[in-house]
């Protein structure tokens, strides 16, 4: 498979997951701000922006890897958050931007993604100009729900129409890495606010995990169980552990030649270390050290991203052309 195609598929996975998770997180957090009289809108908005890595002091979308998100100035309203994280088309981390970027990647790999997947992404992209109108007329919830539905349609078609070859592995890998990243970010809203706001209920809802959580723990809502569920649950597909495991098995399948000692690639090493770090520590231990665990997870995601890019997408250094020389 062409590296370029593999990279596009990987990023389709990442962007679509990013769009979906951002939509979920925004939807639940904004609803929370309205429905709960004790939430302070300013604080909640700032914490949300901070966690999503938006720094208002700089121009939005500037992707400084060390982007400290604490320098937000001016009043931040819920509407502004929707604008920045939901509707900003120039920011590939906003919902709209991520969907556009996913479609752009699919356009470059049209012969590989199934036509049904392409059509879904393309139709979604064509629906984006309506998004703003939809938000105005029917409220943000309608828009976020639409996004979730489109992402689910794509996930379903991917599942139903792609053969489980390398391309599939890259797409699922991208999705899983993004999922780890988003869940870790989400959890860090909680830790950063001193463990009180937003509540675990909000966090679980943001992951679509509320109902499964209730079912699993029979309605007892406490910090330990909720953190355990989002970090460690083996069966819930959006838990950090499940996403890491999926990423790990994708990476393993991408390297059919098993070496006799350890694993072959850097990416496998990074993901495996991160997974075992969660798996073989008790929930209490993780809770006591949640801040650094989450920071570690976010680092893991970036490192995996780099390792995968190096290993599969840019094995040779890019040829740099000097335009005068061509002319």
């Amino acid at each position: 498979m062409l590296s370029r195609i593999a990279e596009s598929l990987y990023w389709i996975g990442r962007y679509v997951e990013r769009a979906e998770d951002t939509a979920r997180i925004l939807d639940v957090h904004l609803h929370r701000m309205l429905a709960d009289p004790w939430v302070d809108e300013q604080t909640a908005c700032r914490s949300l922006l901070g966690v999503m890595g938006v720094s208002l002091a700089e121009s939005p979308g500037a992707s400084d890897p060390r982007g400290e998100a604490t320098s937000i100035e001016g009043p931040v309203s819920a509407a502004r958050v929707v604008g920045l994280l939901g509707l900003d088309e120039h920011n590939p981390s906003s919902v709209v931007g991520a969907l556009a970027a996913a479609r752009e990647n699919a356009r470059g790999a049209r012969e590989t993604v199934s036509s049904e997947m392409w059509e879904t992404l393309n139709a979604t992209w064509h629906g984006l100009p309506d998004a703003r109108r939809r938000v105005e007329q029917q409220g943000v919830h309608a828009f976020f729900r639409w996004v979730r539905e489109r992402c689910s349609v794509l996930a379903g078609l991917t599942d139903a129409t792609m053969s489980r070859d390398e391309g599939w592995l890259f797409l699922v890998l991208g999705r899983s890495v993004e999922r780890v990243d988003m869940t870790a970010r989400l959890l860090s809203t909680h830790v950063r606010a001193g463990g009180s706001i937003p509540s675990w209920l909000t966090l679980l809802r943001s992951c679509g995990a509320w109902e499964t959580y209730l079912r699993t723990y029979r309605g007892s809502l406490d910090d330990r169980h909720a953190a355990e569920f989002l970090l460690l649950d083996r069966l819930f597909p959006r838990s950090v552990f499940a996403a890491l495991s999926t990423a790990e098995s994708c990476l393993a399948e991408l390297e059919p030649d098993h070496s006799r000692a350890g694993v072959t690639t850097d990416a496998q090493r990074i993901v495996g270390r991160s997974r075992t770090n969660l798996e073989f520590r008790g929930a209490d231990e993780l809770m006591a050290d949640l801040g650094s665990v989450l920071a570690g997870l976010e680092r893991t995601c970036s490192q995996v991203n780099d390792a995968v890019s190096r290993r599969y997408f840019r094995q040779t250094s890019a040829v740099l052309w000097v335009s005068e020389a061509v002319a």
């Binding site: 999503m52 992707s63 890897p65 400290e68 998100a69 870790a184 991203n305």
Partner: peptide
């Protein structure tokens, strides 16, 4: 603070 999300190849 969490960092900005990883940028894709086509920004």
């Amino acid at each position: 603070s969490p960092r900005s999300p990883d940028p894709g190849p086509v920004a």
